[in-house]
Amino acid sequence: MTVYDITFYLFALITLGSAFFVVTIRNIVYSAFFLLFTLFGITGLYVLLSADFIAIVQLVVYVGGILVLLLFGVMLTHKITNVQIKSGTLQIIPSAIAVIVLAFALIKIFLSTNWKTFQLTAQNSSVQGLGVLLVNQYSVVFELLGILLLIALIGAASMARR
């Protein structure tokens, strides 16, 4: 067991444990805060995979943006005086069985496939490589994503104001 292994198991435990609470706990605000820990754990996994820029973007966009947006959604769609911020559940047992079967099938497929992997080598920061790719090979995708984000935000603002 190296430090890398211990760190991986720690972050995987944080991720999966809090993801389990996200989907099972009844209070929506608690679920949102467990989602925070899940996203933090995934950030740690990205760092272990030496994807430093993705890890930072995950922190800034998910934890700083999307999670706050979800919390705003919880607060705006429940009257604050009405304490009952709970989420009902449907069909727990059949869906639990189906999901467990799906999980075993996925894991079996992943484990029985002989993926061609390479020996890991130390990597430098990926920021420079990502920047070069974004303005050369993927420049059209980059511009299209910018336009898409602008359209989506204008549409969301106009829809929410109506």
């Binding site: 996200v22 899940t38 919880v74 449907l90 869906s95 999901v99 799906l102």
Partner: peptide, 20 residues
């Protein structure tokens, strides 16, 4: 993680939980 997400989508009633 994928299967936990699927479980959340199909069992929760609240739309925000489905988003999570």
């Amino acid at each position: 993680l994928f299967c936990l997400g699927i479980f959340g989508v199909i069992t929760r009633k609240n739309a925000i939980m489905v988003l999570m």
